[in-house]
Design a protein around this nucleic acid. Sequence first.
DNA 1: AGCGCTCCAATTGCATGCAGTTTGGCGGTC
DNA 2: GACCGCCAAACTGCATGCAATTGGAGCGCT
Lengths: 252, 252
Amino acid sequence: MPARASSKTSESSDKVSVICRALRRAIIEQALEPGAKLPEDALGERFGVSRTIARHALGQLAAEGLVELRRNRIAVVATPSWQEARDAFDIRIELERLVVRQLAGKLTKAQIAELNAHVDAEDRARGGTDAVSIRLATEFHILLAHMTNSPILVRYVSEVAYRCCLTLSLYSRPHSTECAINEHRALISALAKGDAAKVMELMHHHLDSVANRALVAPTPQRGRDLLDILAPYADEVASDRVVKLPKVARRS
Amino acid sequence: MPARASSKTSESSDKVSVICRALRRAIIEQALEPGAKLPEDALGERFGVSRTIARHALGQLAAEGLVELRRNRIAVVATPSWQEARDAFDIRIELERLVVRQLAGKLTKAQIAELNAHVDAEDRARGGTDAVSIRLATEFHILLAHMTNSPILVRYVSEVAYRCCLTLSLYSRPHSTECAINEHRALISALAKGDAAKVMELMHHHLDSVANRALVAPTPQRGRDLLDILAPYADEVASDRVVKLPKVARRS
DNA sequence: AGCGCTCCAATTGCATGCAGTTTGGCGGTC
DNA sequence: GACCGCCAAACTGCATGCAATTGGAGCGCT
């Protein structure tokens, strides 16, 4: 039996959805860095819609964990902590093991061709920016999820993969794409062979190594947000001996 | 090392969030059945807010998969197909295995007491309605997720657990709570013992048996929506030989 | 009856307006 | 110069209003 094929997936073509897609892409390509401000009327003006719509879009993205929404404050692109990043990868590993378990040996020739075509695209993009490589690599995984034809699985894999994207831009050292591409090819061929256990193991290792390459260590100095950097020290401030800190300008 | 303790979890106390919580609860307690209509102004009037807010709340719930939003149409409580229900349970199993893996042997005495107290509450509620039992059972799992102190994990477990609640109300035979309660107790004691593999196995079996008890079979006649029943036949319509169907009244 | 058409009430999609809150800078004081 | 309070600009929270779309009642035709 071939893997279930195609379904209606997409967000409707609301103005809200359009803005969501645009912002999502801007975020995962790091055009918008974590912490970037997202004022409602600026967005509205930029996309030619009212604040109501921009606001609604921000709400959706907040539900996906890509932006942070604080009452009466300007929304910002989410800045996951190192621990959250690690948690996201752990969840992602489990979800994607499930994906390949369902897919092993059930892909049609057309689907395998589609996967290979995508990896070819990744290959061609090697000359480009890191951001594009990361986006393509992420989209490979989302493409896989789509092939399960389980809308829920697609949604969760997409979300968590986007979040991982976000953290890569925060904590990653300069990305090395080669190995990821090779691992993608290995995944495809294992999927075609149909050994579920093997391909789950491959996926596990693939994501784990991406996570380990990326989340080098709890290195607070690479975290962009002063609040995060200072978080571990906050306890001392709360306790008896207050540590005096020199005045530091917030990254504007 | 004890499991990480407590964090800021909550939705802010927006009007939007209040309505979300109210609707979510109404849905999982089956006060609102799958397919129930949710007109924006009716909600607004009921909760004493404008349509804007009600609309926003519906958007959030749609992002969680609890309501379905079709352009220019009245929003309705989601009606997952049998397959989607099964998929949701599969995902849930993986996520909750992850939860107990992280928690095994790392719970504080206070946390174990909290869990036991919750199961006691489940026990006391056995005389009440099924809806309340189901809600409490679900909240037990969410409570566990909270103890991992991983906001992402909490979010996903909560969402998928709510979706499972929803499907239980659709496809389940009259609920038998006894065994679930016993299994919850077994989980707690295994968590306290700290054998990760054992407790993962317990959780897997627990959820799987709930799913199997609930999702009795792909019995389309119990599915509420004609469209779902006919979905498998849609392919034929698309192909060469068009199947003529007698006119049937839609469930109003 | 059964079928198709028209038209109106119900409902959504979206923009705008107003009130309340936060931010950041400016001037005053030490 | 450093600190503090005040004020205007910026921004969000929310309600309301208007145009566009939908669904279904009513009605005529076969």
